[in-house]
């Protein structure tokens, strides 16, 4: 199986390639990609040089242009697709139907992947994207079980890519309004969930409060692990009860399910974390490259060491195994 690794900066891209990434995904430094964070992402020159570096080392680069174009501002997204082709990207990762049509018509040679943001979760819709826009691969939303993924693969020629490690977005992707509600900015339109500009931390006496858009969304005591300030991981008090309303602050790690995912016909394993450092990228990519190589060679998979890098310092296999059903 192919591992698809995150890079928020050229340094992270080089680290991913050196650590054994088959493929790296990244984005331009604007609202066209869903990790539009301060200080992150690539300008056009950096993208061109980074792709050349990856190609020289036998790795591929995918460019995520996976937010939804704003009415009247489509040119920004069109330019991003054109520049991806110019930079010799191996594929673009798109979510918006209009942008898929634009890329299909104007850059037919540029391979198209469907972003997780499109939330394509059954074979009918995936085949529609394949037929209509020539989509070659779909990134499946993190709501499916392994048997459901196998059922999809049995009915489509479109390759499937699934998340195997990193932060969890618990809503059917592309349909979460929590960040918009609290901050007016959304992952789908502005490329940021819980933008840093709306996040405030206060620490007093070892107790850490995180506020998003003025709302206190969690409070952790001295020595307790801190989560990301996303509303879905918020801890709220109602009446006499306090708890995580949507999701515990845990991170996805489906490493142990890799043999089943391979049997289910998955082509590529995606690692989340374009907002993370070079150090994270190196460690996680090295770990997963060793794991896929062991799997392909029929060897026992190496024991993972990644829990400390995870949000909440805890891991889950998420929806792949719906233990709550």
């Amino acid at each position: 199986m192919e591992i698809v690794c995150p890079a928020g900066t050229p340094a992270a891209l080089r680290a991913a390639v050196k650590a054994g990434a088959h493929t790296v995904y990244c984005g331009f430094a604007d609202e066209t990609n869903a990790r539009n964070f301060p200080g992150l992402n690539f300008d056009r020159d950096e993208m061109r040089d980074s792709i050349a570096f990856a190609h020289d080392h036998g790795a591929k680069v995918l460019i995520a242009i996976n937010t939804y174009p704003r009415a009247g501002d489509e040119a920004l997204w069109h330019r991003a697709v054109a520049d991806a082709a110019k930079c010799r990207a191996d594929a673009v990762i798109l979510a918006d139907i209009g942008l898929l049509a634009f890329a299909h018509q104007n850059f037919p040679e540029l391979r198209r992947h469907l972003s997780v943001q499109a939330a394509a979760a059954n074979a009918d819709i995936i085949n529609f994207y394949g037929r209509t826009f020539g989509v070659k691969r779909v990134v499946l939303p993190r709501v499916l079980t392994v048997p459901e993924i196998a059922a999809i693969n049995a009915e489509t020629e479109v390759e499937t890519e699934v998340f195997v490690f990193g932060g969890l977005c618990v809503m059917a992707e592309g349909r979460c309004s929590l960040s918009s509600y609290a901050t007016g900015k959304s992952p789908n339109m502005n490329g940021v969930c819980s933008p840093a500009s709306h996040v405030e931390y206060h620490e007093q006496g070892g107790q850490l409060d995180a506020r998003l858009g003025g709302y206190t969304i969690h409070r952790v005591g001295k020595g307790e692990p801190a989560p990301y300030p996303t509303l879905c991981k918020g801890c709220f008090t109602a009446g006499s009860k306090t708890g995580h309303l949507f999701e515990d602050p845990v991170s996805l790690n489906a490493e142990a399910l890799m043999p089943q995912l391979q049997k289910a016909g998955v082509t590529a394993l995606k690692i989340e974390g374009r907002q993370r450092s070079v150090s994270y990228v190196s460690q996680v990519v090295r770990n997963f490259r060793a794991a896929v190589d062991a799997l392909d060679a029929g060897r026992a998979m190496p024991e993972g060491m990644l829990v400390r890098l995870s949000e909440g310092q805890a891991n889950t296999t998420g929806a792949y195994r719906k233990t709550w059903r």
Binding site: G39, Y201, V220, E311
Partner: peptide, 29 residues
């Protein structure tokens, strides 16, 4: 990794979170 240091509470951040992220990412890059 900066986020891992934050999760483990070895690192504390206060004030303008965007500025902190920009600094962290720029130094990392």
């Amino acid at each position: 990794d900066g986020d891992a240091l934050f999760f483990s509470r070895d690192l504390t951040v206060e004030g303008d979170t965007s500025a902190v992220l920009a600094l962290r990412n720029a130094i990392d890059a």
